[in-house]
Nucleic acid binder design. Structure first.
Lengths: 289, 289
DNA sequence: TATAATTGATAAAAAATATTTATAGGTGAG
DNA sequence: CTCACCTATAAATATTTTTTATCAATTATA
């Protein structure tokens, strides 16, 4: 059994057209016909229902079942090349979400340098959500990650490096009374991180939970810009403390009984990954922050 | 890329010998050599370390990594045939652990008959542990299952049909005082189910927890035999209430504060399974007990 | 309604890939 | 040193996949 046949079948079930599928793979149309025929012979079952004519063929029940397995098989197979390529290059492709990276990397920099890992790491800077997808696709080997919940994906494994809190912050120039309540912020302008970050979702949940409707005047994916705007008192914000450690010109607003989810700072990787000594050492360097 | 090459590679890494692997697949020895060569060329990496001589070749780091993926791929592929075969036959292979089956099937029998499902079900009678393995291997489509914990396997899905308790039971002929304590049973002979059932593990945990060492005189995998022996006062036992519903000649011993795990009675199947209408109906019949 | 255009199936030929046969070379045990 | 055993390689063969060429069926459209 050839994996190509699975690939043809997968695409065929998506495109619902033999000739288009053939075109997609740059092969002739009978190639697809014969590939399907091979599968149907191999399993001795009809897999696709050739409809009267229109460009709408459909999978049989057995075809649907096969497709599920094929998806898994081809996905796994696509991970192989990505994995082996990086092993060959002795490089580790590492996902780096900006906020966490700025907080953590200075702490481990000397160690990374000492063990000559700085040039072993191929950095991939992106938001936590995108990095998670890339990790699962095998585009990166491991990633730093910030999240309000611990990943439950059975393919992934992680180490929690730190647990931070979300904070409401404002310019140090502002004065706020003690025992602040959320309702005191009703006239404030909010500047928050946009949908690339987990912050937006947390903020929305927060809004729902406390039934408030803050005035969001600007969203950005650049947290440095956000902090600068807050420093200059263009608005107040909602962000993990990770981002404001060692940042001057910013104060944290204290509330009683504010219930916010924790912000887990993790190192995450696929369970499947064979842990080379480099890989393990790298993780341990980050663990021992 | 041919799946055969993956199969050869998998076996080679297990057998650590080219010629034995060839023999295992009934092909000539160069077939294996060339298969490996194809893989090494495809991925442009050395995959196995040909040792000086002895029957001990070893995988390189890249080879180990490949093997992990290959295992997954071949396992998934082996599920395909099993799945499609049963679909073809329009039969549903169902795992039936005896205790649960005897309890449940009488309750659904008329319904199964009414919808003509009795001859659609291919019964596979075995212990819960074995059935779980068979389910994962695709040997059966779904299974009744008794367990003290809910399965966390990401490939499996289940519906809890009932939650029962474990009981300590004795012949009705016996008289026990009220407010029994475990220490009162110190001179009793125990007859319990053997390692094929979850009972043994639960019983061991129980022993550890309460730091008692009961006198086990006989173990069996046949719960009907066990019940008979208890009825005839050959010993007392430890078993889920599922087994003793509607059984005469047996009493349940009551203890204060005995903390035992629940016994979940479930219907379990692979997430991957495409749920045919027969499949769904079957589940719903059992769900509506 | 006739005609053109598009789609999938099939047969036969060609191309690509996998396997075998035959053999060579290396290694360790005795 | 020789034998037994293992893996690698070349060349021949077998098998599998793909292409080319063509047909029949169906839809769009003139």
């Amino acid at each position: 059994m050839n994996l190509n046949d699975y690939g043809y079948f997968q695409k065929l079930s998506e495109m619902k057209s033999f000739s288009e599928t053939a075109h997609h793979f740059n092969v002739s149309q009978p190639t697809i016909t014969y590939a399907l025929k091979r599968l149907e012979t191999e399993y001795d079952t009809k897999l696709v229902e050739r409809k009267s004519y229109a460009n709408s063929l459909s999978l049989t029940y057995a075809g649907e079942q096969l497709l599920k397995h094929v998806n898994k098989i081809l996905h796994e197979d696509s991970l192989v090349k990505a994995d082996l390529n990086r092993i060959k290059k002795k490089k580790i492709k590492m996902g780096l979400p900006p906020i966490i990276t700025n907080y953590l990397v200075p702490k481990v920099f000397d160690n990374l340098k000492k063990f000559d890992y700085l040039n072993r790491i191929v950095p991939v800077v992106d938001g936590s959500k995108e990095l998670l997808t890339k990790l699962k696709n095998g585009d990166i080997d491991l990633s730093l990650l910030g999240s309000t919940s611990l990943p439950e994906d059975p393919e992934l494994e992680y180490k929690v490096l730190d647990i931070h809190q979300f904070k409401i912050i404002a310019s140090s120039n502002r004065k706020f009374k003690n025992n602040l309540k959320l309702s005191d912020l009703i006239d404030e302008d909010f500047i928050i991180l946009d949908e690339k970050s987990v912050h937006q979702q947390v903020f929305n949940d927060f809004i729902d939970k406390y039934n408030v409707s803050p005035n969001i005047i600007f969203q950005t994916s650049d947290y440095k810009l956000l902090l600068k705007l807050v420093q200059e008192n263009k608005g107040i914000s909602f962000i993990t403390e990770t981002a404001i450690r060692d940042t001057s010109g910013i104060q944290e607003l204290k509330f009683d009984n504010l219930d916010l989810p924790p912000f887990y700072i993790m190192m995450i990787y696929r369970k499947n990954t064979v842990k080379s000594s480099i890989f393990q050492k790298l993780i341990s360097i980050f663990e021992n922050v």
